[in-house]
């Protein structure tokens, strides 16, 4: 296994992105809105595509704006469909983000003729390419750091409001805390983070970074602060483990499994998501074991 400077940047970017995603993701989890993260990451696609068409380049403000608007659009319109149309929550979300995603796929196909844009890149990122930069520190590292710091700052500042809105939104509203506004804010931050992250991990794998570290953390801690802390740890660990596995163990195992000798390293972002999953399921098994040993596990029906 050869480790180059590029690998360091890859791990760093992955870690920063994962940690940046984990932060809003924890609150999505607590609000029982994990699938909103899924919805937003699908829905930003047309926003990105339109941004491309408008600005003609990949890192641009119109793209950021387009994606954020798409995210807000999803949350708002699905809410309208749910209330006015009396459609169930999941279905309302599904209608909106599926339609937006389909629209995005079409727009990307159109945009691809004008701009050099590979749909696969948008969807599952190209971490390995994103860190290739003439500068000493790749641009994407700065971006990821910035979004991470932004998210951490916002959470620190609005901690009690976020906590209360997650736990008891009606009480929060009665206390004068605009829980609706907080939820919208969360949506905006998630969309923003998704956009920054898509270049490295792609818009779909963002979901893994949003939810899985937080879910793992919830198996380790019962306080919001504890969950936040552990989610950052797990995010970091996933990034490190993911890349390591991607360049060494995974191709070797895959090669052994399939009898091929010619496999190079795998997509790091994908392996990061898979590693997050490994960590999660390991913790799940461990906590289940711990509970059944201490006798508090659920017993069978009569």
């Amino acid at each position: 296994m050869i480790w180059t400077e590029l690998d360091t940047w890859i791990v760093l970017t992955g870690a920063l992105t994962a940690m940046a995603c984990a932060v809003p993701g924890v609150f999505l989890l607590l609000n029982k809105q994990s699938m909103l993260g899924d919805a937003i990451s699908h829905a930003v696609l047309p926003g990105l595509a339109i941004g491309f068409l408008v600005s003609g380049s990949r890192d641009s403000f119109p793209m950021l704006l387009g994606a954020v608007l798409a995210g807000l659009f999803t949350a708002v319109v699905s809410g309208v469909i749910e209330r006015r149309g009396r459609v169930e929550t999941g279905a309302s979300l599904g209608v909106v983000f599926c339609s937006l995603f389909a629209l995005g796929l079409i727009l990307i196909r159109i945009a691809a003729d004008h701009v050099d844009l590979d749909p696969g890149c948008v969807l599952y990122g190209a971490l390995e390419l994103a860190v290739i930069d003439s500068a000493a520190v790749p641009r994407i590292v700065w971006q990821s750091t910035a979004i991470l710091l932004l998210n951490l700052t916002l959470v620190a500042v609005f901690f009690k409001e976020l906590q209360l809105a997650a736990f008891d939104p009606r009480f929060a509203r009665a206390s004068g805390i605009p829980s609706g506004g907080i939820h919208h804010g969360l949506t905006v931050i998630t969309a923003l983070t998704t956009v920054v992250a898509f270049e490295s991990v792609g818009s779909i794998l963002v979901i893994a970074m949003l939810i899985v570290p937080g879910a793992s953390a919830m198996l380790l801690s019962r306080s919001v602060a504890g969950v936040l802390f552990w989610s950052l740890v797990v995010a970091l660990a996933s990034a490190l483990a993911g890349h390591l596995l991607a360049i060494s163990v995974a191709p070797a195992w895959l090669g052994w499994l399939t009898g091929r000798q010619d496999l190079g390293s795998l997509n790091s972002a994908g392996m990061m998501a898979a590693s997050a999953g490994l960590i999660f399921f390991t913790l799940l098994a461990a906590s289940h074991f711990a509970r059944s040993i201490s006798g508090h596990g659920r017993t069978s029906v009569l």
Partner: peptide, 28 residues
């Protein structure tokens, strides 16, 4: 069944983890 995590979390976790693993293999 084995955790206090709710439905939506379970769906999101499986969705992203499995897909990530799939993407990794696709890259191979």
């Amino acid at each position: 069944k084995t955790s206090h995590l709710k439905d939506d979390a379970a769906l999101a976790i499986v969705l992203s983890v499995f897909f990530g693993a799939g993407i990794a293999m696709l890259s191979a």
